[in-house]
Amino acid sequence: MNQAEMILMGLRIWGSIGALVAGVFLTVGMDRIDEDAREAYIFRPLLIPGILVIWPLVLWRWYLYETGREVWARRYDPPRRAHFAVGWMLPLGICAIIVTGLSIRQQWPADIAPERLSAPAEVSQ
């Protein structure tokens, strides 16, 4: 099994688990954690692509709601505390990537002559 097949197998496994989580969460879990979503079935298919991708987060949040460990007052504190640091790290990281890319450019030897490409030959049947 080569690397591309392993990546494809991993994506298939991830998607299969995500489909299973989406099916269970949208039929059973949605009604249990959000009273506004009860009897509202039209919007649920729109959530399937997102659940396929972030199913571990969906399971974690569902677990927190079911066990009662969700603290609404502190729900948005960690993202807000990180805004300042991320606001500086992103532009500095982009500048570092550009500078690194420009400094590691490859230089080709001057004695390599260009080679003319031709169209593929037609196959007669």
Rank of each mutant, 00 (worst) to 15 (best):
H83T: 06
E39G: 09
R105V: 09
I42P: 02
W62Q: 08
R61N: 06
W62L: 11
I42G: 13
A82S: 11
Q107T: 14
D31C: 10
A96I: 04
V86S: 05
I54A: 12
P78Q: 04
R69N: 12
L46I: 07
S124K: 14
L20R: 00
P78I: 02
S118G: 10
M1K: 14
V53E: 00
W14D: 07
E115S: 12
P79D: 03
R44D: 03
A40E: 14
R69K: 13
I94G: 01
E5C: 06
P79E: 04
V58M: 03
A82K: 02
P91N: 02
L117C: 07
E115G: 03
A4Q: 12
R32L: 11
G29S: 09
P91H: 04
S103D: 11
I112L: 10
L52D: 04
F43Q: 10
G23D: 09
E122W: 07
I42R: 14
I104W: 10
I42W: 13
G50K: 06
L117W: 11
L90H: 03
R74H: 04
M89F: 14
W62H: 15
D36P: 01
G93Y: 05
P56T: 03
P45D: 03
P109L: 02
E66V: 02
R105G: 06
H83A: 12
T67W: 02
W60C: 01
A40F: 11
A37H: 05
I104K: 11
G101F: 15
V28L: 15
A119Y: 04
I42S: 12
N2H: 07
E39M: 09
I54M: 11
V28M: 09
P109E: 10
D111H: 10
I17G: 07
G68F: 03
L57G: 08
L46A: 15
T100A: 15
L64H: 09
A19N: 02
W14G: 05
V21D: 13
R69L: 11
V21N: 08
P109M: 08
D77M: 03
